[in-house]
Simulated scan of single mutants.
Amino acid sequence: MTKYREILRLHSLGFTQRNIMQSCGVAQKTVVRVLRRANELTITWPLDETITDAVLEGMMFPKADKDISTKRKSDFVYIHKELLKNGVGKKLLWTEYMEDCRLNGEQPLMYSQFCYYIQQDEQKRRATMHINRKPGEQVEIDWAGDPRT
């Protein structure tokens, strides 16, 4: 997380943007954005102790609701059943989805987003889980051979 409080404190002490960037471990563009936004909102350094970095981020850079989408999601149960059939692919299902969206006056997803959401749905249904391991991490080798022989 960006250290908004630290950026404002160092700026109030007269540090250069480059020094603030190196001290906080952020890009210079981040320092410029934070200082510009703090100036717009007239936020100055002696901040109240209750204002944390998370609160500052909410004040300075409020996020729009990403859950509200104007594009229609596809029916994943139908897609899952159709993909099990021979000769049916994602491209064919996407074209059907596009036609259905156009007939209903809705905005469709692009093909890459369509495939991404299908992949996310498939991972929810998947019964296996991938465990990341370094090569040879759990390999036990008996170089001496079988001790009973």
Score class of each variant (00 low, 15 high):
79 I>N: 07
74 S>A: 14
74 S>Y: 03
127 A>H: 08
122 E>S: 14
70 T>G: 09
121 D>W: 13
105 G>L: 13
114 F>T: 02
91 K>V: 07
62 P>S: 02
76 F>K: 12
112 S>H: 07
82 E>D: 05
74 S>G: 04
70 T>H: 06
119 Q>P: 00
85 K>R: 15
74 S>K: 03
74 S>M: 11
130 H>F: 10
58 G>I: 01
62 P>L: 03
94 W>Q: 04
78 Y>C: 03
57 E>H: 03
90 K>S: 12
109 L>S: 03
126 R>S: 15
76 F>D: 02
80 H>F: 08
87 G>N: 15
69 S>W: 02
69 S>K: 13
67 D>F: 13
79 I>T: 12
69 S>A: 02
63 K>V: 00
125 R>M: 14
120 Q>M: 10
84 L>N: 07
129 M>K: 14
126 R>I: 09
109 L>N: 05
135 P>M: 10
77 V>W: 05
116 Y>I: 05
133 R>N: 08
93 L>E: 04
102 R>F: 10
101 C>G: 07
112 S>C: 08
64 A>E: 08
64 A>F: 03
90 K>W: 05
70 T>N: 06
124 K>W: 03
124 K>F: 06
106 E>G: 01
117 Y>Q: 12
128 T>K: 10
121 D>L: 01
87 G>C: 08
93 L>V: 06
133 R>I: 11
131 I>P: 01
128 T>S: 12
98 M>W: 07
134 K>A: 09
128 T>D: 10
94 W>R: 04
87 G>K: 14
101 C>A: 04
63 K>T: 04
64 A>G: 09
71 K>H: 05
64 A>K: 10
115 C>W: 03
127 A>M: 09
106 E>K: 12
126 R>D: 15
109 L>F: 07
94 W>H: 15
100 D>M: 13
101 C>P: 06
102 R>K: 13
112 S>A: 13
111 Y>D: 01
107 Q>A: 11
77 V>S: 10
75 D>C: 04
135 P>C: 08
133 R>L: 11
118 I>H: 13
103 L>K: 15
85 K>M: 09
65 D>N: 08
92 L>S: 09
91 K>P: 00
77 V>H: 09
66 K>T: 06
135 P>W: 10
113 Q>G: 08
126 R>M: 14
119 Q>V: 07
91 K>A: 11
